[in-house]
Design a protein around this nucleic acid. Structure first.
Lengths: 254, 254
DNA sequence: CAGCTCAAGTTGTCAGACTAATTCGTAGGA
DNA sequence: TCCTACGAATTAGTCTGACAACTTGAGCTG
């Protein structure tokens, strides 16, 4: 994702052509040799780029037949997020997507807290606390946002439930690229960041699951609404937007 | 994932060496030319395989320096799931992992229902129903399990919230490979599959979010407990194992 | 010992050739 | 007319060899 070089450039170029609609789903891509001459590189570079796009669920190559563009909106992976959202933003349609992304962040943040409370061992949680404290001095918006995500991810890591870590990685690593787009708008860390996060870690270490989940919900409520207000998307009346288990859903008769 | 060829074989071989511990995190892999001669293939094939492993967060290559093995348990992607769980199963440690995977499935299934209720348009939901009905005749365990996952994924697709679809893909496509491991154990579809799923789709189309979520919770409760009992992992007393928002958590005073 | 230079080693990219698979037009037959 | 079978053209997969860009570490110099 952060890698450089010719193959990366070619992959970005091809991906943007697909996302922008120059190569719509279903069509066959030009042959590798054609792409090579057109983009001014060797065939191996084209192949490297196509391998990456294939891992993103954007194209699929078949020997003898060529590479077809897949229905990437339905078959893709979270790696598509940054480019997709950039395009949506350029068309002024970003607001509902951002709201939904925040909802997914909340989903995973809640899961992170839950896992850390249940399975996190004390040493690993200590490391998360160290990571958190090292993020306190940072006021740069982009850096802060990355560190905040890293703390939540650290909670999952501390639980040592690796499949959950991998799911978190699939979402958070594109989110990292993405947040650097919005962080300048969102401004620096919220004023109560240090206090709220410290309290969260305390609750996690005390294994108070219910209190910790309530706390993270409240914190994200404030943060999300602030961000949405600044982005400019009408913040949709009330908290129904969030996908914490809706209040009315809470199973009353189970 | 389903692709064939020499590169796939090499990638599997290298990945299994990493997961089995032959190449522990931090060490440098042998040079590409060495690997090529050792595995009996050309250097381009090795490079193709390494590119895939790199996309899985298992290795990282640097020009001039070589390829290092990453801390794949912390940095990996859900694509590691099948091999990891196979290894855990061979050591008899599968039960807690399976329980956790079922928890994650519930998380995403609930999200699928929620998104479909809120954003799914009627035509797209009709397509999901068609897909579901075409799965009714299937009694083969593996095929059924794949189709059931596909129905839940279809609900997310119907909502047209693509980032959520991509997150679901990241989890469900490895789960597909994985379930084919356990499906023979789990046996065919549960007796109430047709009835329960039809009711779920009805509730979704009627936009009754709360009822739909309750329904899917109850259905998954039954399915999960049956599977866990057969797998042999002690099913951990009661439903506290599931990660539906715990009853006591349901925000009473918000 | 600190700092510099340079040579060896490694990945990234290019080029060309061959292999294996698919596609499609066409000739031939029912 | 329709259908089948065959073969040529097209295309991705793999191998080989070469060079460029970069990193590392040993040896040299002060």
């Amino acid at each position: 994702m952060i890698s450089k070089g010719e193959a990366e450039r070619v992959a970005r170029e091809l991906l943007s052509r697909v996302v922008m609609g120059a190569y719509p789903p279903g069509v066959r891509l030009p042959a590798e040799t054609e792409l090579a001459t057109e983009l001014g590189c060797g065939r191996s570079t084209i192949r490297e780029a196509l391998t990456r796009l294939s891992a993103m669920g954007v194209v699929a190559s078949r020997r003898g037949s060529g590479a077809r563009v897949l229905d990437w909106r339905k078959e893709g992976t979270p790696a598509l997020l940054p480019l997709y959202l950039m395009q949506a933003a350029s068309e002024g349609k970003a607001a509902p997507l951002v709201a939904e992304l925040l909802g997914m962040r909340r989903l995973l943040a809640r899961e992170a807290v839950r896992l850390a409370v249940r399975y996190g061992d004390d040493d690993a949680l200590k490391k998360v606390r160290v990571m958190f404290e090292s993020s306190l001095g940072v006021s740069d918006p982009v850096a802060h946002v990355v560190l905040e995500l890293e703390v939540f991810r650290g909670l999952v890591v501390a639980s040592a439930m690796w499949p959950a870590v991998w799911l978190a990685n699939a979402f958070w690593s594109p989110m990292r690229d993405l947040h650097s787009l919005f962080a300048p708008v969102a401004g620096g860390p919220p004023p109560d960041y240090a206090e709220a996060m410290k309290r969260l870690l305390d609750l996690v270490e005390d294994r108070r699951e219910d209190d910790a989940l309530r706390h993270v919900d409240k914190y994200l409520d404030r943060v999300d609404q602030t961000l949405l207000a600044k982005i400019g998307g009408a913040p949709e009346q009330d908290t129904r937007t969030s996908n914490r288990p809706t209040r009315s859903t809470a199973r009353r008769r189970s």
